[in-house]
Nucleic acid binder design. Structure first.
Lengths: 339, 339
DNA sequence: CTGAAAGCGCTAACAG
DNA sequence: CTGTTAGCGCTTTCAG
């Protein structure tokens, strides 16, 4: 028989109201009573009934605020669809979602969104935008007020967020190396392209790649910093390919994929060198179809959205704290046939 | 404002009991009243509240029976863990799970399990065992009694099961071909190994592979039927490898992977030919570590378990019918680094 | 064929 | 500090 709050109350000789107070850490219970109740709870292995809880919450649903970049950024659509999937499952289980879209190039916009959610009395926040001191301060403020914040997709480091859900950048670098090793079996030279080595996040993939090729006969010819711009990427890669005729592969860790592909095309090397990159955007699909890109490595963005919301829900409704500070979503190897 | 059963009742001038009867298709409501209520339901876009429903069901939980092969088959552990994950989320939401482990080599055992669940009054059944006429008959019987059956992992074709959740065999063959193409760029010959071409399920991967290599310079040297046995596999593959010195790759569609790996080893070809197989079992991990196997293709078995239970839950508790007859779980490409 | 009422387990507001 | 009570929305039994 499943144990209820009422049984605990009877066994402890108190009312269920009191048990509820103890269970939810509300103040106003004599310490000794609290302790006795806790003992009984442990002993009976009480597990709260979700349906009952959710139903009771229906009067005043738990509000979860979601801060996202503008809707037109396609990458986030997938994340949003994951959030939506979780929301569908959680439909009618005592929550209400408030979406806030903020300009992701202005930190003030992100901060303002958090502020707004705090003011409106949100119970939890899902934040998927850039890292910055101002943002950090706002997240910490929410945390102080007891509003848990989950960062998603890109972390806000050193903040009081409850956990981060996103990709394992280093792992994707290691996988890229594994793929290269399978395609380039003899002594060979590869180019690694990244945005900006000053950022930890960008270095992670490159260092994973380095680790991954250790012990193989693959040599990194150069690491090119492209700063995410088409021009820089195109020019630097093209120059390298022209000056150096023995490049066997390219690992595009981060940066402007279009610029890189064009450089390969104009160097007349399309399909002649092995090419591994990340994520799937139209340019990548195109490049795969043309046989320029061999593999792309994906971080299940749907899963990111799904997990983030679930974590917040579980914390808010069942009190279950996330079991880790970092939740890495599945890293998968993709070829067009596997989509 | 969310609309409730009570509002519908008021608007229709009846009691909530009557609305409930209509909503759940129970008999004993005058046709005209039923119709009027249905109209209002549509008009108001009524969505039942899950928490309330689940809570009410708590008196007499919906019982879902799960028929699985014996616990010691490791492959099924992953499926079970997926079922468990769904069960955890559904904890306290009005269901109760009954696991039944049956000998998967005896159809009578599977049939008896279904019979038992029917007799014990299960509301839904998850079936993950072999296909057979006797099984089909039992599934159909359950279906007639209004007990939905979901087949998982391997389908029971032409039965009245509500849907099937499993892998897309053909797709995995196509992916295998895509991987081979990326590793074997020149004219090359591959061996395809399968269990038994008489079965549709086994032919599917092979035909997917054939499709996938179309237009490439890969040629299928031979399709070997191994009948899942170590001996057959070992002997046939070894013989082929010895008699034929120009095999560049092996696609192990189904069969005894251990036998095949040993044949490759003893032919002195470990690491010298490209090798793609399916799933991940200890032998495969070993083969990957030794550099014999390049890629393995996986069908997320956890997802199978998770989805299956969710589908049954949604059907039973919210009345949402599965949107498709076939649910294919994600097919993913795996190398050791990506695990 | 239909209505009324009790109850699923928990929360919250109000007394005391 | 603690007990009581009235719901949350739906199902189910018992009358009528």
């Amino acid at each position: 028989m499943t144990v209820t709050i009422r049984q605990i109350a009877e066994k402890a000789g108190v009312s269920r109201g009191t048990v509820d107070r103890v269970l939810n850490g509300r103040s106003g219970v004599k310490p000794e009573v609290r302790e006795r109740i806790m003992e009984i709870v442990d002993e009976l292995q009480y597990v709260p009934n979700l349906a009952a809880k959710a139903l009771a919450f229906n009067k005043k649903p738990v509000r979860i605020g979601i801060v996202l970049p503008p809707r037109d950024i396609t990458f986030f659509e997938q994340i949003t669809s994951g959030i939506q999937a979780a929301a569908d499952e959680l439909q009618g289980l005592g929550i209400q979602l408030d979406y806030l879209y903020a300009d992701n190039r202005r930190v003030e916009a992100g901060a303002a969104a958090i502020r707004q959610l705090i003011d409106e009395g949100a119970s939890g926040i899902l934040y998927a935008m850039m890292d910055d001191d101002l943002i950090r301060a706002h997240i910490d403020e929410a945390a102080e007020l007891g509003i848990p914040v989950v960062t998603m997709n890109s972390d806000v480091e050193q903040s009081k967020r409850i956990c981060f859900v996103g990709q394992d950048l280093k792992k994707s670098g290691v996988i890229a190396a594994g793929l290269m090793r399978r395609m380039l079996r003899g002594p060979s030279r590869v180019l690694v392209i990244t945005s900006n080595l000053q950022f930890h996040a960008h270095r992670a993939r490159v260092s994973g790649f380095r680790e991954g090729i250790a012990g193989s006969r693959i040599h990194i010819e150069a690491v090119i910093e492209s700063f995410d711009r088409y021009e820089d990427t195109y020019n630097k890669v093209l120059m390298q390919l022209k000056s150096d005729s023995n490049v066997d592969g390219i690992y595009m860790a981060t940066g402007h994929i279009g610029g890189c592909l064009d450089a390969v095309r104009n160097a007349g090397l399309a399909g002649k060198l092995r090419f591994v990159c990340n994520d799937i955007i139209p340019e990548v699909e195109e490049g795969m179809k043309q046989g320029i890109i061999d593999f792309t490595i994906m971080q299940n963005p749907m899963q990111q959205g799904y997990r983030s919301l679930r974590i917040l829900y579980d914390l808010l409704l069942t009190g279950k704290r996330p079991d880790a500070e970092y939740y890495y979503t599945e890293t998968s190897i993709v070829i067009p046939e596997s989509l």
